[in-house]
């Protein structure tokens, strides 16, 4: 019996910014219902990978398939149709300043799914409750929220349309360890409840170990190791070992300029 087709299949992805090669023939599969975390240093191209999948950046070459459909170069309604499968939690939460919190959460329901505002508000308040936010928060402006609350609102917005695939961009960056753990628990809960496929990027190993089924390490534009989370400590890969233990010495050389 053949293996089930992956939800996301990436082959030979190349993306450069002028002379800076960021993704250099990257291959990655994310299975249906699987939670994959891509780890890697700052500037290794993790965010670029997500943006290429979402069509926010166009790769020079390579293939990205979602449910077997090629998404590179998609435009117009066909792209909108594919994007409706996705939810995304941005690193900075990227909440819309001009809208109150509940409208941020309901945005995809009102604009994308064309739901009535009252109905969308009801769903938004439900989703906010699911991430531990009361209805009184719904009337606040995003500027009035703390970092942890912004992440929760971002998470509620990501899950509001019940997407099939959810991306998490550095979900715990900038949070204290306790709030980081709260966000990790919420991510696990929301992804399980929706039965969604999750692709996260982070350099926070505590978060990666907690939310991942499988971890992939991105280095030098390629996935240099991928495997179940339980195997990462015995990967036998010097790059992975240096990264997960946070050592300055090792094959990964940080570009530090002398002052």
């Amino acid at each position: 019996m053949s293996a089930p087709a992956p939800k996301i299949r990436i082959r030979g992805l190349h993306k450069s910014f002028k002379k800076n090669v960021v993704l250099d023939g990257l291959d990655l599969d994310v299975g249906v219902g699987e939670s994959v975390v891509v780890i890697g240093g700052s500037g290794s191209g993790k965010s670029v990978l997500l943006k290429c999948i979402l069509g926010l950046l166009r790769p020079e070459s390579g293939s990205i398939e979602v449910d077997g459909q090629e998404v590179v170069g998609l435009a117009g309604r066909e792209r909108d149709r594919v994007l409706r499968k996705f939810g995304m939690l941005f690193q900075s939460a990227a909440l819309f300043d001009s809208l109150p919190v509940w409208e941020n959460v309901a945005f995809g329901l009102i604009q994308g799914a064309r739901k009535d505002r009252d109905q969308a508000k009801e769903i938004a308040l439900d989703k906010m409750a699911a991430v531990g936010l009361g209805p009184e928060v719904g009337e606040l402006s995003p500027a009035e929220l703390s970092g942890g609350m912004r992440k929760r609102v971002g998470l509620a917005r990501a899950i509001a349309t019940a997407p099939e695939i959810i991306f998490f961009d550095e979900p715990t960056t900038g949070l204290d360890p306790i709030m980081g753990d709260v966000i990790n628990d919420l991510i696990i809960k929301c992804v399980r409840e929706l039965g969604a496929t999750a692709l996260s990027i982070t350099h926070d190993m505590t978060s990666a170990r907690k939310i991942a089924d499988r971890i992939a390490m991105l280095y030098d534009g390629k996935i240099i190791w991928a495997g179940p989370v339980a195997e990462i400590d015995s990967s036998g890969n010097a790059y992975v070992e240096q990264f997960i233990h946070g050592r300055a010495e090792g094959p990964i050389e940080m570009q530090v300029r002398a002052i």
Partner: peptide, 25 residues
Amino acid sequence: AEIGTMRVTEQIDALDTLATNPFKY
């Protein structure tokens, strides 16, 4: 200033991922 701030804080990318065309919206 408003659209520029939305660009640098990824709000325009967020619009796009919510299947809303920034040109239209």
